[in-house]
Design a protein around this nucleic acid. Structure first.
Lengths: 394, 394
DNA sequence: TCTGGCACTCGGATGACCCGAGTGCCAAAT
DNA sequence: ATTTGGCACTCGGGTCATCCGAGTGCCAGA
């Protein structure tokens, strides 16, 4: 599958990852209110500014060569040489010229030669440049969009939505997909319920506006009367209902004092359990799919895949991974740009999604650095949008 | 490729290895294969009915040789030859003798030679014999038991229990672990709760005696009054409380008729959602860990691992897998004995666990056929017991 | 029934060899 | 100054021949 011919000799200096304006580094601060169709591959601000000096200005053709190398390599999974390049993409120059360009690109660290007499492979830095300036997010085709919609529309449940989303994303990108449940921290309280399971055992149920349900068991120091429970429930809902979860502690802090002294320890215990549930570590939930796609990773297989599988087993790692996603716009982290060492040979494409303009959680995919960035980004973006819509509808 | 002495597509044999009751060498004649209450649908699987004739009586030494082969192969992962065998295990005979025995074993299909001049490797059938008659479940050491207990004791939650269990099991066996949540079908109702989320949107929460909590959203045909809700809640709990879930439908069937005609459709809807939750497909939940251990599978790596990863992604497959576990006693399915084709090169060791003597769910591990059966079985059994205890305590 | 001896097999490791894709560089052409 | 054709060079990977030894099967003798 090769994409459109892309005869696209863009004038120097123009950023191309999107309709972005000024330069390769887009303005970082962005009014969060308009996350319209203009999401972009946000350049991860990893590249240290100082090194900018040693980057000589690459002319158009060199960039085209890099783009061609990336495209070919992603397609064939094999180092690409000058001759093949000239043939497959009709750059109007001779192989020798391309070789010169390649030499420059290699000097600047965008590509790399596995063996002296082999073709070139993009480096992380090369992919970075490709993503930032040479590629456009590839929009989903109409049938694809229809399929997405169709697939997601059947969901009955938040669990179901998340499950479907993650599977869909894995299938669409043929990579490992990760979807985070809507974070409590960014949701509002729809309802708080307290159930007496036993005299001094209470179940605390939190329901969010995004449809998420969390429950905790609370062992209270003493037995809790039915009236106390009803009372507490009523007051909790009165004060916290409709509010954002992070605001809840402040809003209900003084509740214990309004109860009989005998009941206060119980109330306090319930509340502190409630607060605990809001701590990031406890509140985040993640779903994963597509691990089988790891087998398509490459030839040097076992070595690469092992740390990745390990990473995927660690919720914490995944959470941190998604946590690094920019609040608006798509984030692409390539190879070594990933904090977690085990993922140093993978790239992560992630984006926030939400019912309105606020993002309530993140989702993304993890694949080999050698991935189809435009396609992956397109899929991730599209899925995120649809999930947002679904969430908004319910 | 015309090896495969296995002329024997016998129905995949399930066999449960019961405790140590049978010594290394046991009476060949085992009572009927009727799944009697006493565990032991077992070794019946050994006898492919018609071909029973060609199984000559294996004397003790041949069995010892087979055992030695299995042990060595599991240890070294390399075909084992006659000389090495004699050296490492002090069978008091010469290599030549062992070779003769090996020839017999191979004829009978217990072992197999990858190449003419290579050592022997156990076949599925060989492992089967080993598990059924040559191995004893290896009990956990005292420190191991302490570690298990310690690790599981910290759990606060059913989710937590399951999560810890699955991780523990994966770590202990260094394989992929699967733990099923206590099945609703085998639990009793501790509490049923109904929450009004909106006028005609109700959340149904089921809490079991095993600490499991399930919730469903119910969209009722019309708005439901608070009194109706309270009423329904009270009656549901009165009738169903303490009863086994499967009995619930019959117990509450007539409830709608006791409500105002206007409310009946709502009540019916709630009840049918309740019933739906009890259907196997919906009610079963599974947790997985240790996929990274798949990388230790073998050399012919990618090919073997891919279908396994695919299987692990399919809840349905896993459920069916665990579903095949005998109700009491440990089940070991070796290689081709597994229904699911993708797991044809793996073995599954599974067992039921429960708070009392009844098993409420299953757990197990999935690993290469070449696994340490006694150790794995020991770990699985031990973990299952402790989880049972933990469940009983809470 | 076991054992020692012996011829035989073959997988896998080693090394020589060649091929060709791909490079870097240079001098000529534009 | 840039591009191009030419050319010598590199080196990974495939092929082939060779060798080694672990392991076997078989047989005759204990």
């Amino acid at each position: 599958m090769f994409d459109e011919p892309e005869s696209d000799p863009r004038p120097p200096g123009r950023a191309s990852a999107s309709e972005g304006s000024s330069g390769p580094k887009a303005a970082p601060a962005r009014a969060a209110s308009r996350p319209t169709a203009t999401q972009r591959a946000a350049a991860a601000a990893l590249s240290p500014e100082p090194s900018r000096l040693d980057i000589r200005q690459l002319d158009d053709r060199k960039l085209s060569v890099l783009r061609a190398i990336v495209q070919d390599y992603v397609g064939t999974e094999e180092p690409v040489g000058s001759k093949a390049l000239v043939e497959r993409h009709n750059l109007g120059v001779s192989p020798a010229t391309v070789r010169n360009d390649m030499a420059t690109l290699e000097e600047d660290g965008y590509i790399h030669q596995p063996h002296t007499s082999a073709g070139r492979i993009p480096t992380d830095k090369g992919y970075r440049l490709f993503v930032d300036r040479l590629a456009e997010v590839k929009p989903m085709s109409a049938p694809e969009r229809r399929a997405i919609r169709h697939f997601l529309d059947g969901a009955v449940d938040l669990d179901d939505v998340v499950a479907r989303t993650v599977r869909l994303l894995a299938q669409l990108t043929r990579q490992v997909a990760v979807v985070q449940y809507p974070s409590l921290t960014r949701s509002t309280v729809r309802h708080v319920e307290l159930l007496a399971l036993a005299p001094s055992k209470i179940m605390l149920v939190l329901i969010t506006n995004t449809g998420r349900v969390e429950q905790r068991i609370v062992d209270t120091p003493g037995p809790v009367g039915e009236t106390t429970l009803a009372d507490l429930r009523a007051r909790l809902n009165a004060r916290a209902g409709g509010r954002f979860f992070p605001d809840v502690p402040a809003l209900v802090e003084d509740l214990p004092s309004s109860f009989e002294p005998a009941e206060r320890p119980n109330v306090t215990t319930v509340l502190s359990t409630l607060f605990e549930s809001l701590v990031e570590q406890n509140e985040e939930r993640i779903m994963l799919a597509g691990t089988a796609n790891l087998t398509r990773f490459g030839h040097d297989f076992p070595l690469t895949i092992q740390p990745v599988l390990e990473a995927l087993e660690e919720q914490v790692v995944l959470l941190r991974l998604l946590g690094e996603t920019a609040d608006s716009g798509m984030t692409v982290r390539i190879g070594r740009e990933n904090e977690y060492e085990g993922l140093n040979s993978t790239s992560v494409v992630s984006v926030g999604y939400g019912s309105g303009d606020e993002s309530v959680a993140k989702l993304g995919v993890i694949g080999p650095t050698r991935m189809d960035y435009p396609g992956t980004m397109g899929a991730v973006r599209a899925v995120a949008r649809y999930v947002g819509q679904i969430l908004a509808e319910s």
